[in-house]
Simulated scan of single mutants.
Amino acid sequence: MENTAAPIAPALDELVPSRYALKVGDVEVLVISDGVLPLPTQMLGHNVPAADRAEWFEEMYLPQDAFDWALNVMVVHSGDRTILIDAGLGMDPDLQLPRAGQLIRRLGAAGINLGEITDVVITHMHMDHVGGLLVEGVKEQLRPDLKIHVAAAEVEFWKSPDFSRTNMPQGFPDALRTTATHFWAEYSSYVHTFQDEQQIAPGVTAHRTGGHTPGHCVVRVASAGQALTFAGDAVFAVGFDQPNWHNGFEHDPEESARVRIALLKELAGTGEMLVATHLPFPSVGRVSLEGETFRWVPVFWDF
């Protein structure tokens, strides 16, 4: 008799990887995807003609109207500290972004208990970097001695934020204001501010860059002669080919370009690794400089 039965495969919640582990010297790093955020293509270069943007998107085999921005965060284990760098978007039903805001679930899938986190570094207070802390039930799971590190200039900026130089889709400025206000109301007692530089743990240091927002910072992880910089929103996918293109979320576009170029030159010189919030997951790579042209060199995945 013919056996027509077939083994039943376990259901898969996700068909793509959402975390990537690596070591920087003796420091353990985990890049986690918070999902993706669909946005208009003009957000990557609103200061240039539409034809120039269209050419770049065509060369990159990307759609012309809107595309998915990656949302990446990092977890760093250094000594007895477990550090979360940025907290993702959280869940904002008014913005209808169902494929974003996955961080809390994916931390659990990675075996990371929220109560283990000793420190959070917020690169800046845009909603896709603080929103995960505002998900219902999260605050109750965090440890009472949690330290949230934010540049003092960032805290000051969000008391009366200026959106006059940005170029965002409708609804985003109000959502950003509301989320920053909500974050401060919930977590101000946890916040530890710094001026220009703050060591978070052995080999883990936050550096204020400004530009994208006045208090925007990057986080450098260095150990045993190796290094990695989490660049937050200082670098976007188009920024290697066109570092002077203005991103719609930049509060000071010219300063953002200067910060971006300086950071890319530094990383090209040192050869250290780069991770950024909106580079395609897992966004781990290096920067090559040929003349005045930057090139992103993704790492080969290591299994």
Rank of each mutant, 00 (worst) to 15 (best):
T179Y: 00
A231C: 12
V150K: 05
L71C: 07
Q42A: 09
R260D: 00
L97W: 13
L12G: 01
D233A: 10
V218S: 09
H207K: 06
T229C: 07
L274R: 09
V238E: 10
L263M: 14
Y190S: 07
I32D: 03
S256I: 06
A54C: 04
Q195L: 10
G115C: 02
W296R: 12
L289W: 07
L263T: 07
V150N: 02
Q242P: 01
L274G: 03
E140D: 14
T4L: 15
S160P: 00
V48S: 07
A268E: 11
H149R: 00
Y20M: 04
P93W: 10
A11V: 11
G239W: 03
F294A: 10
F194I: 02
P214C: 07
H278M: 09
F183P: 05
H182I: 01
W301S: 13
G271L: 12
E292C: 05
V218P: 04
I122R: 03
N47Y: 12
L12K: 14
K159T: 12
Y187W: 05
A109F: 01
G35V: 08
V138C: 08
F236S: 02
H129E: 14
H246A: 14
P202G: 03
F281G: 08
P7M: 07
P63G: 09
A206R: 00
E272G: 07
P253L: 06
G25N: 12
E59N: 12
